[in-house]
Amino acid sequence: MDLKLELKEKLIDQLNLEEVKPEDIKDDEPLFGEGLGLDSIDALEIIVILDNNYNIKIGNPEEARDIFHSINTLATYIEANQK
C-alpha cells in the first residue's frame, strides 16, 4: 500500500480520529494546531506508532516537531530512516 495512505489510516486508527476519513487529510497540510487539531499527547503517540511499525526511534520530542509537520514530511522521514 501507498505509505502515505497507510500513515493516514494508522493515524486515524491509533489517534481515535473517529470523524475523519483518509481523504480528509491533505498530504501537505499541518497535522498539528489548525489542521487535524492534534495535541502533544498525539505527538507522543505518533512516536510510538513509528517505533512499533517502522522500527524508528525518536528520543527527543523536540526533534519530532519538524518531522511531524505533515503527512509529506512524515513519509519522507520514514522512507529515509526505516530499517
Binding site: I41, E45, V48
Partner: peptide, 10 residues
C-alpha cells in the same frame, strides 16, 4: 514488553 502508549497512560 511493548512500548507504553502515552495516550492510554494519561
Amino acid at each position: 514488553g511493548k512500548a507504553a502508549s502515552p495516550a492510554n497512560f494519561v
